[in-house]
Amino acid sequence: MKPKIVSFTLNGRPVDVMVRPMTTLQNVLRRQLELTATKAGCRQGSCGSCTVLVNGEPMAACLLPIEDVEGQEVLTLEGITPLHGLHPIQEAFFENFAVQCGYCTPGMIMVTKALLEREPRPDEATIREALSGNLCRCTGYQAIVQAVTDAADRLHGNGGVS
């Protein structure tokens, strides 16, 4: 078992990590790079709390061997958080009380980011389907759906609705 070096782009910056074979992206982020916004709710791809964007596509970091992201672009919640203040999606989650215990929040926000890049104005059914892989056990889905709609307004204007 020889460690190897894997290079990829993380939140816009090139990184090289020395890893043992098949270390998950989740463990590289959380344990090696100490970027813990990406959570570890199940490590089975079931809860969505570790969702990151790989080349813009939401993926479960717990199911992704780090070798698979060699040369790819990975975006985590740390990567969308501005130095000061909040990203509009974060503002929308904060203002709409779409956070309770906070453990599902990073995954929810990452999926929202990917969704709004594809569909600037998703309807409720589209939002619910997009978020269906992200479990919130505090049962705050209604507020989360509202937050995504509000985030769309914040990012793309409210479409003339006053």
């Binding site: 813990t36 956070v99 926000i109």
Partner: peptide, 23 residues
């Protein structure tokens, strides 16, 4: 009044420290 969560900013930025984040 609507009162924002004290820990809400940490949650939306992922800066809240949960137990498994500690090493």
């Amino acid at each position: 009044q609507s009162v924002h969560r004290r820990d809400g900013m940490g949650h939306v930025t992922g800066r809240t420290t949960f137990v498994d984040d500690i090493q």
